[in-house]
Nucleic acid binder design. Structure first.
Lengths: 145, 145
DNA sequence: CTTCTTGCAAATCCTTTGCAGTTAC
DNA sequence: GTAACTGCAAAGGATTTGCAAGAAG
């Protein structure tokens, strides 16, 4: 059992929940890649591999992984959620190209630090944050003229 | 006609669109307050005042105001959109309390400046951005222990 | 064996759309 | 006049839920 599986197991145990076949399947699939993904895409990929987990269970499991701190949920100004797993992947923020839809990641320690300052100032205890910048990437900027 | 009405009028004119009764009603209601709001809440408030605009038209008009740069759309990790109008209201970011749902605004010029730096670094032309910090406010922090 | 889970299909929520009649310019 | 607009009701997409049967501890 690897690192993140252990973490999930411990989270489930603490809450009196069970480590089922489906939960293991979903978790493995989620951690198989570092890409952003959406519930529906994940479901399709799993179906192609004949990993049978129902849509309902998938959604329920993703929620569990988010609660358990293994998965990050991002809502990119659209109506469906994107996810990305947290293990071995430092926190970062996103540039979203409105032209080609590309999502670029960046990380800036100064911004992180300033956010902490702000939280202190407002006596706010942060859990997560999300910074996204919408605009046009180099390529699409040119095409736009 | 006031400032934002003029701006909308000019935007509509430029695009060959019409300044209808309903659009005027929605715009007035939107600009009547500085609060964040959601489409459904706005609709209800308008109904209470006997301002009859259909749900479809409301959504269409909100989209128009966003396109026209009069309204800002925020997706707070939930499924419905929040809006806040832009006039007389500097850009700012948000602290969202997961306990009581309160939304607090803040503005930090250093963060804004750093974002611009990042965009330059990635040759990215920003249109808008959104930074939200989720966590617990002072009051809810205490209650949580 | 008891409690938690699953899969299914139906429900939900917010938002968008098609269309026939109406209005702004 | 004629494009754009409206309201309605129905459709849409992503996610959630109720429930009876199944699996984990």
């Amino acid at each position: 059992m690897n690192d993140h599986e252990a973490k999930l197991a411990s989270y489930l145990h603490k809450r009196g929940l069970k480590f089922t076949r489906q939960r293991r399947i979903v978790m493995r699939e989620v951690f198989a890649s570092h890409e952003h993904f959406q519930a529906d895409g994940l479901l399709q990929r799993m179906r192609e591999k004949n990993l049978d987990v129902s849509k309902a269970t998938l959604y329920r499991t993703l929620a569990l992984l988010v609660e358990g701190g293994l998965l990050r949920q991002e809502v990119f100004g659209e109506r469906h959620c994107h996810y990305e797993h947290i293990y071995g992947h430092k926190h970062h923020d996103h540039l979203l190209c409105l032209g080609c839809g590309k999502i670029e990641e960046f990380r800036n320690n100064d911004i992180e630090r300033l956010q902490d300052q702000i939280c202190r100032k407002y006596a706010f205890t942060p859990t997560t944050h999300q910074l996204e910048i919408h605009g046009h990437c180099k390529k699409c900027r040119k095409e736009q003229g």
